[in-house]
Structure formats: structure tokens, C-alpha cells
Design a protein around this nucleic acid. Structure first.
Lengths: 213, 213
DNA sequence: ATATGTGAATTGATTCACAGCG
DNA sequence: CGCTGTGAATCAATTCACATAT
């Protein structure tokens, strides 16, 4: 268990999603082969990914949906709830803030911030937009763990600096920017422009494609 | 050049972004080391990534910013323009449709679609929302290459099927869903909920982190 | 009988060290 | 002399094959 591939974590998230659907459909049993089909990976891969964390199945029988789902939620840290704040209340920030069922995933949006005085004071998704200067206080008082960056490219590093100073533990970065943060802060990029450019490449070079992250 | 790692393509996109900034700042020369710093990778990695596609530098001197930028745009297929259509005109779809400077990247949004009759007919970002049934005609008439899926999870596979039937060549999938498409169609996932869950894992297991995709 | 769990083999990606060129 | 370009070496991830458990 000393080192787990990043790709494994991404796939665990996918398996969890599939198990959640299966559970909602009332299906009780599954197998590495079924999960592999749904996740578009090999059954070997599913078993190896799970093996990094333990043994969750029954030989000859497969996996019990609720059990495996519970284990994956525990592994991914989704049995507790996480508090988040969003920096950048333009259209993208608003869309993210309104994302339905945030709470259903145990992510609680507890703060919305911007530097633009015209945006400060507005109501968005039940939150009053505050100035970024308030970030350290709000992060402390509300116990915010995660920051979302939804500002334009030029402002992304400043937003990251502000979030790090305020004390968040991780950042979900929607800006098309490689941000520089202390190594103990984890950053997950969510960069749709980059995805669009990769798409351009792969449409023109279909033969050079193996697998998608 | 027979096979190029997916991660290389992602990094080329990053290098291009950095070069674009350098060019905007009027900087004419750079080096693998400088690019590596900005992109948070090693200089070896930069040179190896470029080597998959040719030789773009001058030994002893480094790279010429405008030249390397032009070459990367060519490699990634960004010297032509791409036409896109978006399926799902909820908040996320609207936010994406309004994304500033879409055109600046030579991506042209030429159609907006939904199945909800209440949304059909509305104006969004200069486009009239059309029913998904119109997709095949519009894709054909407007020469649309790329489809964006911004519908909820439950509708994602149907949206993908509609886009594939209409004849798009690639899909940018914002839904939290592994969609099933013919293998010649490339799909790029842009899944922020998955990013959020990975973040949860890495905040709880900081020791298990190596690199971020 | 059947499907998991896992060491070994293979494949792929990154790092290295230095040859090659300006 | 400096920095790129690249084969060789290392390191990591995936695939395989089968022993193992029910």
C-alpha cells in the first residue's frame, strides 16, 4: 500500500459511482467483470485497484454491492462531510455554486468570494458573496477544507495564494493555469479548455490514441 | 512517433499556454528548463515530450517562443477552427456557452440543444436553443466537429448517442458518467465531482501522493 | 465451478547521462 | 561552452496466469 497510482484513485471514483447506481437499482451482487464493463477498463485492473486497499470480495461469488460501496466511500474519505468555499463568482462560479446535489455528496458549500466590489453582497445559491479579504476568517470560523478557483487565468495564482494563506487543505482549480502551491496542498485541475485542445489533437490523430485519463 | 503518451499531450497543452503568455509579454527566447519550471515538470520531460514530434530548438541557445508556439499549435491541431455544439442548457451549459474568448481559441459554438421544451427557443450566448431532434441536421449543415455534454448523469448516455448519430468526431463530457461510444469517437471527460473526490482522498492520505494528472 | 487476489511478466513512461550541434 | 535531442536505464503501471477460497 506504500504507493498507489493516481489513475487507480480516479478509477475507484468511477467504481463507486457504478456501485451507487447498482445500489439504487436494488442490485445486490456484482463482479470485477461487470464493474470493468461499466467503467471501460479490464477486470484485472478492477481487482488490482481494489487490492491496493484490501480484500473486499468473495472468491467464486464476486462482490456485495453495499459492502464494496461502503468500503470505497471509506477509502476515498467520503463518509465524513467536507466544507468548501468558492473564489470567483462569475458565471462559472455561479454555475458550480448551484450544482444540484452538492450536499448529496457530502460536500457543503459554505462561502462564496470575489474581489470585485460589484459582486460582493450579492446572493448566490443561498450564500452572500464576500470579499476575498474575508477568506481567512471564514475558513477558520466555518472549518473550510477545500477551495474552488473559478476566476480567470490572470487571477488564478492570486486566488490560490489567498486560499493557501487562509488555510485550506486542497484546491479544485477550474482556471486554465498551473498554480504554484506548497507541496502539502493538493490541487486537482478541472480544465475544460485543456480537454478541448486534447480533443483537437486526438480527432486529427486518431491512430495515436491509447487510453483516456 | 508511433505512440505518444496521453500525459504528453496534456503537457503540450500546458507548454502552449505558457508560450502564449511569454509571447504576450514580448519574450522571444525560452529553454526547456524555463518551460519545465512554469509547467511544474522536469526539463527532461519537456525535451522528451517535444522529441515525439520533431526538433524545435537550437542547441546551446534554447527555443524561439513564436516558433515553438506555432509548432505546438500545429501539432495540437489549433491552426484550424473547430465548430462545437452543446447539449444540455442548464446552468452549467449556459456557463460554458458564455465562456469568454471561446473564439479566441478558435473554437466556435454553433449550436445549443436541450430536450426540455421549456428551454427550446430561448436565447443563450447569441444562439437559439434547439431541440435535440434537430442535432443531425445542424451538425450536417454547420459542419460541427465537437459536442459538449452538459446534461445530468441520467441523460448523459442519451446525449452521447444523439451526438454520435449526428456525426460529431469528438465529445467533451462534463457529466459524471462513463459514456459508451464507438471507438473512433474520442471522449474527453471534464468531471469536477470526480476531482473533488480525488481531493478528498489525497487530503486524507497525503503520503500516497506522487503526481497529478 | 467460479471469481477473487496476487506474484511474475510485460509493457509503458520517466529519468538519466551524454553525444551532437550551434 | 551551453542547451538540445536521444538511446539506454530505471522506475511505474498494467496485464497475465494461476493458486486460492467458497
Amino acid at each position: 500500500m506504500s504507493t498507489v497510482p493516481t489513475a487507480t484513485i480516479s478509477r475507484l471514483v468511477t467504481y463507486l459511482r457504478i456501485l451507487t447506481q447498482l445500489e439504487a437499482q436494488g442490485i445486490k451482487k456484482t463482479s470485477s467483470e461487470h464493474l470493468a464493463d461499466e467503467a471501460q477498463v479490464s477486470a484485472f485492473q478492477v481487482r488490482k485497484d481494489l487490492a491496493y486497499f484490501g480484500r473486499f470480495g468473495t472468491r467464486g461469488a464476486g462482490y456485495t454491492v453495499p459492502t464494496l460501496r461502503r468500503e470505497l466511500r471509506r477509502i476515498l474519505g467520503l463518509t465524513r462531510s467536507w466544507s468548501a468555499a468558492i473564489v470567483g463568482m462569475g458565471r462559472l462560479g455561479e454555475a458550480i455554486a448551484h450544482y444540484p446535489n452538492f450536499g448529496a455528496y457530502d460536500f457543503l458549500l459554505k462561502g462564496a468570494f470575489d474581489i470585485d466590489p460589484h459582486k460582493v453582497g450579492r446572493e448566490v445559491a443561498g450564500l452572500t458573496v464576500q470579499h476575498v479579504d474575508e477568506l481567512p476568517r471564514v475558513v477558520r470560523e466555518k472549518g473550510i477544507d477545500i477551495g474552488f478557483i473559478t476566476v480567470p487565468h490572470e487571477a488564478a495564482q492570486d486566488a490560490a495564494d489567498a486560499l493557501v494563506r487562509a488555510g485550506v487543505k486542497g484546491i479544485l482549480n477550474f482556471a486554465p493555469t498551473v498554480i504554484d502551491v506548497p507541496k502539502e496542498i493538493h490541487v486537482e485541475p478541472v480544465d475544460f479548455l485543456a480537454g478541448l485542445k486534447r480533443l483537437s489533437f486526438y480527432i486529427l490523430n486518431p491512430q495515436l490514441r491509447e487510453e483516456v485519463a
